[in-house]
């Protein structure tokens, strides 16, 4: 069986490479991909949408419909993780670990033992696997997280002019929360960014995207035709800025969706759906 698998892979790879030899040369200006539609996109992006970064225009406007579904794919991944992994009934581990904060001592409390109060300042619960109390990691991450989030907002807002946009910004935002979770623990993260928030915000993110398109439809134009938004934005009809703002609106939706779904998936994967002890 292994041999058959290996042979199939080798044959497929060889065929793919063999037929790739017919490809136009790398960077060939006369290849169909470079002469047919690309010039249209490059030349018209400023005129159509007033967005210098043509990648953003293609992604969020010319082929914005595809991107809407790509965002939905991200949300679906989050939903799938939740659907398959999440266990609502809490299976508490046989022993719990607590740290006595003033002395740094670790306590192991067997099942049935008396646990410290939930909001105790003296005892903090720690994960059973390995949780050294590292001042350096906690404080460095605390410092970094703010800047990561600020940079994420910059990336979301500047997708029109530089590489970036909703997906990248959303990933950065999500990773800042995940960083917090890694440097502290899952329970503390869940208190700051609840599972419900992640789930609802993910759906709302995609709703912002498709809702923007639907508003265009309600304004009488085709779905996702941002031009129709100009009366709502106080612009003259045919002003390319309407498309620019439309693109910005969907980028924000993408950022929300990607951020929340990243966090949601992390919650479910790191704790095997139990949301009790994470990485």
């Amino acid at each position: 069986m292994k041999i058959t698998g290996l042979l199939t892979v080798i044959i497929c790879g060889a065929l793919l490479t063999y037929y790739a030899m017919d490809f136009p040369d790398f960077g060939d200006g006369r290849s169909p991909a470079n002469t047919y539609l690309s010039p249209h996109f490059l030349e018209n992006t400023m005129h159509d949408a007033h967005v210098p970064n043509s990648v953003t225009t293609i992604l969020a406007d010319y082929r914005g419909y595809d991107t809407m579904y790509e965002t939905t794919v991200v949300l679906t991944a989050g939903l799938a993780c939740f659907f398959l992994l999440r266990r609502k009934e809490s299976t508490s581990p046989p022993a719990r670990f607590f740290r006595h904060v003033p002395t740094g001592l670790t306590l192991r409390i067997e099942e049935g033992g008396k646990l410290p109060a939930e909001n105790s300042k003296v005892f903090t619960r720690i994960d059973s696997l390995w949780a050294p109390d590292s001042l350096i990691i906690r404080n460095t991450c605390r410092l970094i997280i703010a800047f990561v989030q600020l940079f994420a907002l910059y990336v979301v807002a500047h997708g029109h002019y530089s590489p970036g946009g909703g997906f990248q910004g959303g990933v950065l935002l999500g990773s800042s929360i995940i960083l917090f979770s890694i440097s502290n623990d899952l329970r503390r993260t869940l208190k700051r960014f609840r599972e419900k928030t992640a789930a609802v915000l993910g759906a709302i993110g995609v709703l912002i995207y498709s809702g923007t398109g639907f508003v265009c439809l309600l304004m009488g134009a085709h779905f996702l035709n941002y031009e129709a938004l100009s009366p709502l934005l106080g612009l003259k009809t045919g002003d390319p800025m309407a498309r620019s703002h439309g693109i910005f609106s969907v980028e924000i939706g993408v950022a929300f969706a990607v951020m929340s779904v990243m966090i949601w998936i992390y919650y479910n994967l790191s704790s095997a759906g139990k949301h009790d002890e994470g990485l």
Binding site: T72, A199, V200, I204, S210, L217, F223
Partner: peptide, 25 residues
């Protein structure tokens, strides 16, 4: 004339609403 789009958009919007509502109502 918007039927072809509504055919896909209405389920998509509903799916997103249902997803959010499953936590609230």
């Amino acid at each position: 004339r918007h039927l072809p789009a509504l055919l896909v958009i209405v389920p998509l919007l509903t799916a997103l609403t249902v997803s959010a509502l499953s936590w609230v109502a």
